[in-house]
Design a binder for these strands. Structure first.
Lengths: 164, 164
DNA sequence: TTGCATGCAAATCCTTTGCATTCCT
DNA sequence: AGGAATGCAAAGGATTTGCATGCAA
């Protein structure tokens, strides 16, 4: 996977939750507000795009903490629903700050050539998930949906870096 | 991930392509028809459910070949579009025999507790993908969509084995 | 003070690869 | 024969974990 180059303007509005609000969530969950945690949340706030653990670790700069700490914290934050994990099929987890409740729920359109990511506002028809859940007797049904294709800049290129 | 227990009846009709037809596809692609390949295709034909490399390897039984060979072949078959890869978010690739053309395209409903998998016939509204592609100037757009929930048998249990 | 978090290093797990050998075509 | 496929072992890369130490509450 290449390094992230330039990011396109987002199609969905940014949720620029203030850092204090984020740390408050930690406090309410009886989690300690440590330097690595604040730094990681800052990074996620700055780049509202799916980032890998390694990318987050790199972006920490002089606030650097151990990579294992990044992994541990993203797991924790995921458990708290403060971040959402995305899977682009290349075997690497990516995270984004999650909006409160369902508000943050969204999907992506990923260029399989340059890995450019577009955030989408579209989602499944509301009743589809519910119908599927009922028909098969499942509860607490959610879904993961991502789109893959070739962006206009990459049209003509023939190699693929994502989804090997 | 637990071992696969009992599988529910499929919601979509099985594509029981005869083995000869599958090996013919290999022949047409100038691929050699080896014992491991036939055995792997046989396994996939028998279990039309997403299987991991390891599960396939196990299911080979006395037709056993090296695990690396399983990996290599599934990659090859994926490239030929003879199998489809699915990703349930637990960091392990799963494969299924693919129907010809788009005919095999489908999604899953996965129980996050027991990993039971239901094959779905539902798919995205046809025009949604096209609209998204056009709006963002992407071509060759495809999607990955999977549903996750808790099946009726597992209601009441509170541990989760999938999507840690 | 007290246990949650962190750093560091080692361990796991999935997947890929190098190389000599085997075997389809 | 000749190149593709396989077996075996080792390497890679992502992620997790054990343990002693540090630090927020």
């Amino acid at each position: 996977m290449k390094t992230c180059c330039d990011h396109p303007p987002h199609s969905r509005r940014l949720i620029q939750t203030p850092l204090v609000e984020l740390t408050d969530q930690l406090r309410r969950s009886a989690r300690k507000i440590t330097a690595p945690r604040q730094a990681i949340l800052e990074v996620l706030r700055r780049h509202q795009h799916p980032l890998t653990n390694k990318e987050i670790h790199l972006a920490l700069g002089k606030e650097e903490c151990d990579l294992a700490t990044v992994y541990r914290n993203l797991r924790t934050l995921e458990g708290m629903r403060m971040v959402a994990r995305f899977d682009f099929g290349d075997g690497v987890a990516r995270y984004e700050l999650a909006g409160a409740g369902d508000e943050g729920h969204h999907h992506h359109l990923v260029c399989t050539h340059c890995t450019r990511v577009v955030e989408l506002t579209e989602c499944l028809p509301r009743q589809m998930e519910q119908e599927i859940a009922e028909r098969h007797g499942f509860s607490q049904v959610t879904h993961r949906l991502e789109f893959f294709g070739v962006c206009n800049r990459c049209r003509g290129s023939h190699t693929t870096s994502l989804v090997k």
